[in-house]
Design a protein around this nucleic acid. Structure first.
Lengths: 214, 214
DNA sequence: TATTCAAGCGGAGCAACCCTCCGTTTATCG
DNA sequence: CGATAAACGGAGGGTTGCTCCGCTTGAATA
């Protein structure tokens, strides 16, 4: 069915209480917590190595955990993928917030887009569902979209980006760039150039540009 | 021509002689031709119904043909997908050639991209493998990539598109737009805007633009 | 510390799918 | 009408997804 691509992360809500690094004073048994963490680490390794559709048996094996345990913690592949990426998106958002203070609005947006492209490429095949992923509502994804929205609006307020651009459009760009970069060995080297190019495309006609730089 | 273009046609050789509607005075046995046609019809039906990653056993069953026969005619899912889309891509290329005579180079490229996005959506989930499908080597896929290359080079010659853009990049844009549009109900309406946005990103900085218009 | 039991574990096992291999059938040609 | 090579078909081996259920164990309680 088509749901493979689109359903990524929809299931987010069903996950166990505590996120990977938790601290939500969990009612979770110690061995369960341990296994969950091992699974997340193993999943990250395996997905990195073999792509987002690697065998879940491999993940369980690498975690030295029964396959049943994997499915109890993460009822679907999407749930596992979601939990695995969530942390990363959390740090993406956080780092962007810190960094943006010392950058111009358009430059902050550019770096954000570039980072998004990188994150979309951490697992082979993840880029294709990036849009849905970000809409999943998990903590990290929510933080990332909120940050992107913030940067976009700031750039628009300053007249550095056309007013009719939406965050979805930026996400779509990230998908395209990531897909393009994944095609051949020289891809990664082209990311900054492609990113800069498309950010340029977002700018308004020169005569109408910039309340700040004028 | 440049090596980039070559990558688009790499796999071309492996397919059977005659394309879907053939007329290449085939050395193909009558039963083979018949089965091939039935397979194409069945594949189109099944892919339409269940998406581009439907079971190939189902396709064979619907065609009332052994699974071995399916694989002999179409060694990979992409080959089958490519052959199934072949006619459509053929018309895409043809219409683009006709249309482009009365359009500016950049506008012709924009419409081509938009059309490509539409074609990528005929089967649910086809967009995800659009790049591979276009490389399947069927006549229509070849015609479409050739046409895209032609439009791209024309726009570049006129200084309307940056020289370092490759056809692969354009295909990736189509994939991203199609995937993005497939994500929600309002998607299709956003296709023209997204397409325009990407085309804008392809243009060179304004001061360096256009040998023709000025 | 000993007892208790639900939460958690693990992996056998079934179903679905992909794809190959090879014995059988048959279209075509002389 | 043979002869023969092309084409057929589906059994079968390998992989993966996911469930189910008997066994293990953490930790609450006394």
């Amino acid at each position: 069915m088509n749901t493979e691509l689109c359903s990524v992360f929809q299931v987010a809500a069903k996950l166990p209480k505590n996120s990977a690094d938790d601290t939500t004073g969990g009612a979770m048994r110690a061995d369960a917590r341990r296994n969950r963490d091992r699974l997340l680490a193993a999943a990250d390794a395996v997905f990195t190595e073999r792509g987002a559709d690697a065998s879940l048996n491999d993940v369980a094996k690498r975690a030295e955990v029964g396959i049943g345990t994997l499915y109890r913690h993460f009822p679907t592949r999407e749930a596992l993928l979601g939990a695995t990426c969530d942390e990363r998106f959390l740090t993406l958002a956080k780092q962007s917030r810190e960094r943006s203070a010392s950058l111009s609005s358009i430059e902050a947006l550019r770096v954000f887009l570039e980072e998004l492209v990188h994150y979309a490429g951490i697992y082979q095949g993840l880029a294709a569902s990036l849009g849905v992923v970000l809409r999943s509502g998990t903590e990290g994804c929510h933080a990332t979209t909120a940050e992107g929205q913030r940067l976009l609006e700031a750039a628009q307020r300053e007249g550095e980006v056309r007013g009719d651009i939406r965050l979805d459009d930026v996400v779509c760009m990230a998908m395209a760039i990531s897909l393009s970069a994944a095609q051949d060995a020289s891809g990664p080297k082209r990311i900054p150039r492609l990113t800069g190019m498309f950010i340029d495309g977002l700018r308004p006609p020169r005569e109408a540009r910039g309340t700040r730089h004028r």
